[in-house]
């Protein structure tokens, strides 16, 4: 597997989220509709990325429930097209030394099967941090502690 194949295998994955997060996703990310009382992200992936980064910042990694009660969405490669955002995100993911329990050089000598497992693991890291971030947002949301401001997300991010 060369670099291109490796990346391609990674970015064609569709990360998942727990079905219980759907109301939150609808409240905070809803492209086009302005019905929410809160500031919103456009597409789901924006909220998902935001949640993942919050999860990483808060070191809040939370496993997802079994696959059949989760949903997937856009494949990673299609998040924010024509932008290197995904590269940046992967860069951040690959520096999470505590989570990534393999050496980069080791990857180069792995069998394909093994390497695919690593790719799955990376996706899991993404999913679990996103889940952690969503949990954090959900708590605020449920308690009514989300600030009704256009700067709500950046203010939270800055804390």
């Amino acid at each position: 597997m060369n670099s291109q194949e490796f990346k391609s295998n990674l970015v064609t994955k569709r990360p998942r989220y727990a079905n219980s997060r759907i109301p939150l996703l609808e409240a905070l990310a809803n492209k086009g509709s302005r019905s929410s009382e809160y500031s919103q992200f456009g597409p789901i992936y924006e909220l998902y990325i935001y949640a993942m980064m919050i999860g990483i910042k808060k070191k809040n990694r939370l496993p997802l429930p079994p696959r059949n009660i989760t949903s997937d969405f856009l494949e990673i490669g299609k998040w924010k097209r024509d932008s290197s955002l995904v590269d940046f995100l992967l860069m951040v993911i690959f520096t999470q030394t505590d989570d990534i329990n393999f050496d980069w050089n080791e990857l180069e000598d792995m069998e394909e099967e093994q390497l695919n497992k690593v790719i799955s693991e990376v996706v899991t890291i993404i999913e679990e941090y996103a889940n952690g971030g969503l949990e954090y947002l959900e708590n605020l949301y449920e308690k009514g502690e989300l600030e009704n401001s256009h700067y709500m997300f950046i203010d939270l991010y800055n804390n």
Binding site: D87, M91, D109
Partner: peptide
């Protein structure tokens, strides 16, 4: 090596450049 991933990692670094040099200016930007 069996899997040459140098380009993968190298490109991650290269491509994310726009996101790497803004740290200081973000508070001002907000």
């Amino acid at each position: 090596v069996k899997n040459d991933l140098e380009d993968f990692f190298g490109n991650l670094q290269l491509n994310s450049a726009p996101f790497l040099n803004k740290f200081e200016s973000i508070p001002t930007s907000v």
